[in-house]
Structures are given as C-alpha cells and as structure tokens.
Design a protein around this nucleic acid. Structure first.
Length: 773
DNA sequence: CGACGGGACGC
DNA sequence: CGACGGGACGC
C-alpha cells in the first residue's frame, strides 16, 4: 500500500510524526503510491529492478492540486454539501476548506491541527463521525483562512504524512465544491489519462517519471487487484489539458515500458462511473478530459454527449486517428502513430507534421523528449541494429527522419549552427540524421535549454494569434526556436559534456533503454554512467518543468476564459492557451514557413556574450534538494550518494556560478526594461525580493526574442487590457526565469529558487489581478 | 429549501 | 485490452 513517511513504531526517538524529521537516507521504505513530488527529488534511479540498495529517494512534496474527483464544471455547484451560502459571492466566504482523507479513526484534533498550522491559520478542524455510532469516519475538514494557505497545506501534506495509526498518508485536497466556491475554477479541473499496457512491475513513481516531462503530474493511480498487484493500467492526472495532450501525443503507442512487449496506451480517461451517492454533478459532467474543447486538440473522440456521459463508453475505433479527409472541422490529430500525418485542424493551415514528429519534438516543454528519444538512444547504445529498432514500437512516428518536411534543407540555416559544435562521437554517429540531431540539440541544453524552448516562445502565440501578427506564426516560432537553439549552444559551450547534453532530450526513453542493457550481464560501465547522468539531467529538467507547470497553472487560473476566447475566436490555430507556451508549435511548420524566411530574424540574434563563454565551464554532480519534510539534502547523481550536509564541491560550484552571474548582470539590466514596463518592473522587483536578484542574468537570444514578441503583445493589448497585462507579467517572469535557468548548469538549485520567484510573482499577480476574475 | 430515480454502455 | 482508490460534517 501507500508508503508512509512515518511508521509510528519505527524508532523510539521519533515522535509520532517523524515526517518532521529527516528521513533516513538509507531508508528504502518509499514505495511511492500516488505520491507525486512537487519538489521532486533529483534522481529517480528507479531503484527497483536492479540490484543493490536503492539510493536515497526521499519523496517529493504532495501532488498538490487535484481533488479526488474532478469537479471541473463551473456551472453546477457540485457537492456543495453544507454550503448553503450563495456560492457566487466572490469572497469565498473567508475561508478555504480542505478535505483530509486517510485520517485514522483514532486521531484527535490535536493530532491534526498542528500539522496544518504549520502552513497557515487554521480556522477549524472538524473530525467527521458517524451520526449514529459516533465513530470517526477517517476523514476530517480543515478550514484555512485563505486559499493560499490551503494550497500550501496541500502541497506540503498531501500524501506526505501518515498519522499515527494511519494506514497510509493523509490525503489533502479541497473539499467538494470548494474550488468552485472559491472561484478557482481552473484549478479544479484535472486532466486524467488512462494508461494501459503498463508494466505490472511499475510503481507510481516510475509512471510519474514517464509522464512528468509533459507537465507536472498531479496524481498517479495504478489499478491493482485485491492483492495489490498491478493490473497493468492506471491513471495519470495533469492539471492542464495541454500537458495531457502532449503526453498522449508523445507516449501513446510509442513508449515501451521495460519488460513489456506493448507500448503504452495513453488517452483521456473515460469518466469514472460515479459511485452511489456521489453527486450527479460529478466528474462525468465536468470531466476536463471531456470539456467542451477537449476534443479539439486531441483525438477525434466524439464529444461525450453530456446526457450520455454517465456510463457511456465509446467504441475503440473512436479514438483512432481519423484520416484528414474524414476529419471534421474540430478534428485534430489524435496521435500520429501508424504513420498518419493528419492535420491539426480541418483547415490544414498548420503544419501537419508539426503535430506529429515535431509536435513530439516540440510537444510540451518536452513532448519533444520522447520524439527524439529513439534515434538518440539507439545511437547512444550504438546498437542501430534492426532488431533494436524494431523493439521500439515507435516506428514511423518517432523517427523524425521520416517526416518529409524535416529534411535538413528545410531547416533554417542558422540551425546549422549546431554543426559548429565540435563533433563528438555521438554527434558523429548521428551525422546522417542531420535534422534529427539538430532538432535534438534544440532540446539538449541541460534542463535549461529545454526550458528555454518552453519559455522563450510562450507569450507569442499566447498574445497574438496568427491573424493579427505582422509576422506569421511559423516564422516567429522558428526564429524563436532558433534563438532557443542558440541558447542551447550557448550552454553547451559553457561546458556541459556533450555526451550528457545530447542524451538529455530523451531522458525518459534513454532511461528505459539504458536500463535494459544494464540488466544484462555484459553491461558496460559507460551505460551506467550515462544512466546516472541522464538521471541527473532528467531530474533537473523535471525541476524546471515543474516550475514551468506551476507557471502554467497560474496563468491558466488567471484568465482562462479570456485566453480561450481569444484563441477560439481567431484563426486557424486550434491551440490552447499554451500553444505557445508549450513548445508544441515551436519548431514546426516547415510547410507554412519556408525556412528561408526565418533565418533573417535569426541572423539578427546576437552571439553569445563573450563573458559567457569566457567563464570556465564547470559542473557539479551534487544537487540540492528538499525532502518532503522540508529539509535540504544533497544528492550526487554520479555516486548516488545522499547526504544532509552540503558538500564542499557544491558550495564551490555555486560560488563560481555566482561570479559568473555578477559578471553578466549589467547585460541583463539592459534587456529588462523592454517589456511591459509596468508589470515588468513590479514583477522583477518582486522576484528579486525573493533573493533572485543575483540570479538574474544575461541571455542575449532571449532579449532578442523579446524584441520580436513585444510588438505583438502590445498589439493585442487594446482589446483585452487587463487580462493581458497579467499575462504580460507572466511573460516577463518567464523570461526572467528563463534567464535564470540558463544561468547555471546546476539548474536544480536554480529551479528551486526560480520557483520561489514564481510564487512571489504569482502572489503578486493574484493580488493584483483585475477584479472579477 | 427543492436534496437524487432508475437503470446499468457495448465490443 | 487493463477503466477508477477512498474517507465527505454539521453548523
């Protein structure tokens, strides 16, 4: 069952809640069940499978959002059980109520209250007991004064703490109807994917690893039989549809879990059949996966007839990709496997392959990862044998090579910049895959470059759809990606080991692929090393991903409606608000955007600052992390060693990084003032107040991007001033975050700070959001 | 201010 | 080819 942080009998010198104490670094008691790290630990050495004691794997923070049931629909007031107060008052009634599950029946308020008071002002703790028997029901409600406090508590406690006598970690989420009552509609939704053909050995954590590149995974549930044996399928929740979509695009039919002979099935889950007594306004109605627009971008699955959604299941073929000619106006690419190159929209304005290969490439911040993984990992293993290739069910889909529109000559010439990179053995082996390689490298740059892709482009499509842009979408995107690419080059030049860097894009799959050989007797040391490096990179990446996801959530929760409206009312771009944020469209569109156009903007991109290159590159295998109880610890991705004390190497490393930053601060100051004078200023102030100041930096390609995007943003301002101001603010945060991320190879650390900055900025945005939203 | 029936996809 | 955990008060 669920692992627990505490076992009240574990150690005599442990208090009832040893969650407040550092876990034993050698503990192996983390089985991870539905635990989704918020501040995800660095490495995820899927300790299982292999031999030897798994390295310390403290579990991350709670999955945070996501009520157990998806009350996503704004209209009805689901389960507003005792809230007879008018739900439409905006104040939410001056409290935020959380439902706490898995509370031992023996627990008292004194057991519970202190836990929550660590995260805010607890107004009330109400233990629930049976009316008749008076026995406690194993759950309770906790009221906080504000939803911010409630959010903190969720993140800190959900799935993190097992109360004495409890059978599993407590579940902390908003009470039914609470999100709606508080007006946090967007946060109330969740996008649940059904995942089939999973390895029956897989743990929740492993599944999370696979999906987390596409967004912060809110929850993982593996179906198990009575004996707790996996049934080989389960559910993964994201907070945003775009993440789920990206995961589907990238993973469905393409990801082979270790020990499996079938690739994962990934699609939106059917609505869960409500249990007796459950609100009739339950998940089936609001199920985000079935929202009004959900079918627009993923799959041609028929929109569930609301009146029919309670028990309806659709024939399997309904999920299959529809051929373009049959595709209705709203049909999008469900997935591209099977060699289908469907258009993303009925009009065909968007690059068809963009959705597929590049969509994979550009997928979500990393949908890309998966896409490139095949070629990359094959190369890495140096086993380009047909058999090896055939083991991958990816076939056509994942081989960008086979996408007609991606031949090298279609790429902006500036992309060739990559070739200035001194060829490593890896890149040489890939030399025949020029385009792949380049696309891959776009993703490469440590977590940073990945991130940069997501952050660099974002606001563009967000604020302006193609119809109103002076520059066509694709062009902008291309130039943007090119800039990002340059950034990535930049980073590589800063000294990330090329081999490591190149693996990064495909972490997940590489992972998977590396694990296999490792289990075989003649495993090479190099594989192990690579695996470790990959892990480090992967975790770094995840950290950035999480920060990014956070940002997305925030953005989404601020003006979802306005964003949707805008996007809906315009153009052929059926993308969600994230279309720009997610690299999904970043690289693509060779069809529409003659590559020859893009280079002009790219060429304008200044070279990497000398100062950047001048600094001696350095890496550090140690990364800083936070255990679920909030304690810092340090993990060495190479030795897999964990320790509580900060290693000197890391201290030194950070000092060097700091120096580097100081050298470049003036550069950053030059670029900051450009954007959104108002919000920019405030936000940067805010961010810097959270110790970010020293982290801010440089980034020429970035500032270049801003210049390109700026006019477009402002173009849009008139009609939707307030929303877009807020969004503009976000953009600036993204830029800064990006800058910061790029600043250091030790992105895990930076990401943590980045998140802090984000939070501060988010709070600011929230407080300053336009009234009525 | 009303407070959850009835029936139980379809391959 | 596998489809949903597990707790939802009383004022």
């Amino acid at each position: 069952m669920p692992s627990r942080w505490s076992s009240s009998s574990s150690s005599s010198d442990h208090p009832p809640f040893n969650n407040r104490y550092p876990p034993n670094p050698r503990s192996t008691g983390f089985s991870s069940e539905g635990h989704l790290p918020f501040d995800s630990p660095p490495n995820h050495p899927f300790g299982g499978g292999g031999g030897g004691p798994p390295p310390f794997r403290p579990m991350g923070g709670g999955g945070g959002y996501g009520p157990g049931h998806g009350h996503g629909h704004p209209m009805p007031m689901p389960g507003q059980k005792r809230g007879r107060g008018s739900p439409d008052r905006g104040d939410g009634g001056n409290f935020a109520k959380l439902f706490i599950g898995s509370v031992p029946r023996t627990a008292t308020e004194e057991d519970i209250r202190p836990l929550f008071e660590d995260h805010g002002n607890v107004i009330e703790v109400a233990l629930i007991k049976d009316k008749r028997t008076g026995q406690q029901q194993g759950c309770c409600f906790v009221k906080f004064a504000t939803s911010e406090e409630a959010d903190r508590a969720i993140r800190a406690l959900h799935n993190q703490v097992t109360l004495p006598g409890g059978l599993g970690p407590i579940q902390v989420r908003y009470a039914d109807g609470e999100r709606e009552r508080l007006g946090n509609f967007p946060s109330a939704v969740e996008y649940k994917l059904f995942v089939g053909s999973m390895s029956r050995q897989a743990t929740e954590r492993e599944v999370e690893e696979i999906f987390s590149p596409y967004g912060r995974v809110e929850d993982v549930y593996i179906m198990r039989d009575d004996l707790k044996q996996s049934r080989g399928c389960g559910f993964v929740k994201f907070s945003h549809r775009e993440m789920a979509e990206a995961a589907i695009r990238a993973l469905n039919g393409t990801y082979l879990m270790r020990g499996c002979d079938q690739p994962l099935t990934v699609r939106f889950a059917d609505p869960k059949r409500p249990r007796a007594g459950e609100s009739r306004f339950g998940p089936a109605f609001g199920g985000p996966g079935f929202g009004p627009r959900s079918q627009e971008t993923v799959g041609v699955r028929p929109p569930p007839n609301l009146g029919d959604s309670l028990g309806g299941r659709y024939p399997p073929h309904a999920w299959q990709p529809m051929s373009p000619k049959n595709a209705g106006p709203s049909s999008q690419v469900a997935n591209t496997f099977g060699g289908h190159l469907s258009t993303r929209d009925g009009v065909g304005t968007l690059p068809s392959t963009a959705a597929g290969s590049l969509g994979v490439l550009g997928g979500t911040t990393n949908g890309s990862l998966q896409g490139l993984s095949v070629t990359q990992s094959l190369t890495l293993q140096q086993t380009p044998t047909p058999s090896a290739a055939q083991n991958q069910p990816f076939g056509q889909k994942l081989s960008p090579m086979q996408k007609p529109l991606q031949s090298p000559q279609h790429l902006p010439s500036s992309l060739q910049l990559n070739q200035q990179q001194p060829p490593t053995s890896l890149s040489q082996s890939q030399s025949s895959h020029t385009s792949n390689q380049q696309l891959g490298q776009l993703q490469l740059p440590h977590a940073i470059g990945q991130y940069s892709v997501g952050l660099a482009i974002p606001s563009q499509p967000l604020f302006g759809s193609s119809a109103q842009l002076s520059i066509s979408q694709p062009q902008v995107q291309q130039s943007a990606s090119a800039a990002a690419l340059q950034s990535s080059l930049n980073i590589q030049q800063q000294g990330l080991p090329a081999a490591v860097v190149q693996q990064h894009p495909s972490v997940s799959s590489v992972h998977q692929q590396l694990l296999q050989p490792i289990q075989q007797p003649p495993s090479q040391l190099s594989h192990i090393l690579m695996q470790q490096q990959v892990q480090a990179l992967q975790s770094s990446f995840q950290s950035s991903q999480q920060a990014f996801s956070q940002l997305q959530q925030q953005l989404h929760s601020i003006h979802p409606t306005a964003q949707n409206q805008q996007l809906n009312s315009q153009t052929s771009k059926p993308q969600s608000p994230w279309s720009g944020v997610m690299p999904q469209t970043v690289v693509s569109s060779p069809a529409n955007a003659p590559a020859t156009v893009a280079p002009s903007t790219i060429s304008a991109t200044p070279a990497v600052p000398v100062s950047t290159q001048a600094v001696a590159p350095q890496t550090c295998n140690w990364t800083e992390h936070t255990s679920p109880e909030g304690y810092k610890y340090y993990y060495n991705s190479v030795t897999t060693e964990s320790r509580w004390e900060k290693p000197d190497e890391l201290t030194l490393f950070e000092q060097q990084q700091q120096q580097q930053k100081l050298q470049q601060q003036h550069l950053q100051k030059l670029s900051v003032p450009q954007l959104q004078p108002q919000s920019q200023t405030q936000l940067s102030t805010q961010i810097q107040s959270t110790q970010q100041a020293s982290q801010m930096q440089q980034l020429q390609p970035q500032s270049q991007l801003r210049q390109q995007q700026q006019p477009q943003i402002q173009l849009r301002q008139p009609s939707l001033a307030s929303p877009y101001q807020a969004s503009g603010g976000i953009q600036s945060i993204q830029d800064q975050g990006y800058a910061q991320l790029q600043a250091s190879n030790s992105s895990v650390i930076d990401c943590a700070r980045f998140q802090q900055g984000l939070q501060a900025a988010q709070e600011w945005m929230w407080k300053n959001k336009p009234a009525g939203t």
